[in-house]
Amino acid sequence: MRWAGSGTARKGFTVATEHSTASRSGFLRLGFAGAGTLSLGAVLASGAPRAEAASPSPALDVQVLNYALLLEELQVAFYAAALDRGKLRGDLRDFARVVVEHEREHVGLLRGALGAKARKVPRFSFGAAVSNPRRFAATALELEDLGVAAYNGQAANLTRDALIAAARIVSVDARHAAWIRAIENRPPSPQATDPAKTRRKVLAEVDRTGFVR
């Protein structure tokens, strides 16, 4: 079943990760917000405690790390698709080649931590964001900034060990964000301190991209 929304993403390049090609139950069919299908927030929140209100616990770690996993898988798929399209040159290509490997390692760490508790991730479709270098740069900047805000928003929800692991990841995502900002001749950070966004807000922004099928 395809989602019922509209947008360029439907005609775009599709990345099927090894985790996304497995048979999937209804909750994995994600769509654009407001398109009549489940939103990411509804999917991740199903049966889960409200991350923003709960105290750190191993159970909450699983929820937060699955949320982080979704964002990292989105990034891996995005960079892999852009490299596969072969339209990137120079600095942008160098950036994508390095960053995709980092994001794969982030996924590996998260999957290792989650083990059998790792949830399946949806398929993604990026459209012109992976075929047009200008769109690619703008999207990479947005996704990396969003990733940093997402991790920062969960710091207080994590147990000690999970926080230590997340801190090793988030600063590398912050480096990616500043790297693409430097390529784009933008200041390294939008503010003197990085915003911390709630899961609800982050997932709403992801939904709005239309990248999740």
Partner: peptide, 13 residues
């Protein structure tokens, strides 16, 4: 933590 990631941004930039 919100300063931490800005320091990393600076380093990369």
């Amino acid at each position: 933590i919100s300063i931490h990631s800005v320091e990393a941004r600076h380093a990369a930039w």
